[in-house]
Design a protein around this nucleic acid. Sequence first.
DNA 1: TATCATGATTTGAAGTTCAAATAATTTTAA
DNA 2: TTAAAATTATTTGAACTTCAAATCATGATA
Lengths: 145, 145
Amino acid sequence: MVSPKEVINELLVDVFNHILSIESGVLKQRGVKISMTEVHVLEAVRNVTTPTMGNVAAKLRVTLGTLTTSVNVLVKKGYIQRERDESDRRKVYLKLTDIAHNVLKIHDEFHDEMIDSLFKDLDLEKDEVLMKSLENISQYFKNQY
Amino acid sequence: MVSPKEVINELLVDVFNHILSIESGVLKQRGVKISMTEVHVLEAVRNVTTPTMGNVAAKLRVTLGTLTTSVNVLVKKGYIQRERDESDRRKVYLKLTDIAHNVLKIHDEFHDEMIDSLFKDLDLEKDEVLMKSLENISQYFKNQY
DNA sequence: TATCATGATTTGAAGTTCAAATAATTTTAA
DNA sequence: TTAAAATTATTTGAACTTCAAATCATGATA
């Protein structure tokens, strides 16, 4: 007999482990030549309140060296511009270009579709239940590790 | 104003994108020298009904060449044994060793904790709602891509 | 000012992945 | 039956991702 826990786990592994490769295919299909790793860098730059190298690296949980390598490529490809902080010249701010925002738009649409499918057949009360459970897991990891 | 959809999306990105690095830390902490990629190969070998190279590669959605490289290392490290099918000698079956099962035990415990935290405060009826929504998303991707 | 701390980059090595070429074996069809 | 096609897996070469350690530049502190 299969418990709900096992079903959920199987779904998490099967679905979420592979969302990246699916979205990668979507981008490729639309002619955008960018890796998912690079998309996530752009997303982190957008979502972090102050997009310094350090903050973005922390958001992504990679080392600064790793991020520098990524950003070098993204600058070369025209997705990101570097700007030094004039009052503290150690800091570098990352700025997204227009084509970066275009890529993030596709990324957002993909995630919207995903979330919509997640929400299908669910009314608001139940959405809140789901959200509560996701907050639980989020909180759990923040406390635990 | 932040919509429930945005909150869910943020949680998905923040939590699920980083589960791997968290679990990797757990394994490292316990002195197990294995990458998460390698753990996932072991998991796929265990979960697939007939663990040939082809079936495991399909489960993981990587090419056969990629899997061969992984398996070469895992054989060298003592986690996997190769066995040829005697009636169809093109096929190779993968077999987990005892130390592979030990690693998967830690992996399972980690996932159990994760799922438990997900289920905290939720009664069975609500679990079913969550499960239904995960099935929705799973189905969505299977149909769409 | 000399030392320490902070923020970022560079370098070298290891790990991951793919596409294309190759190899071994089985199946199909002439 | 045997030649061609299909299946299953491996090897090879290149690109990408990541990290740790070394380095560099700048700022804070004593």
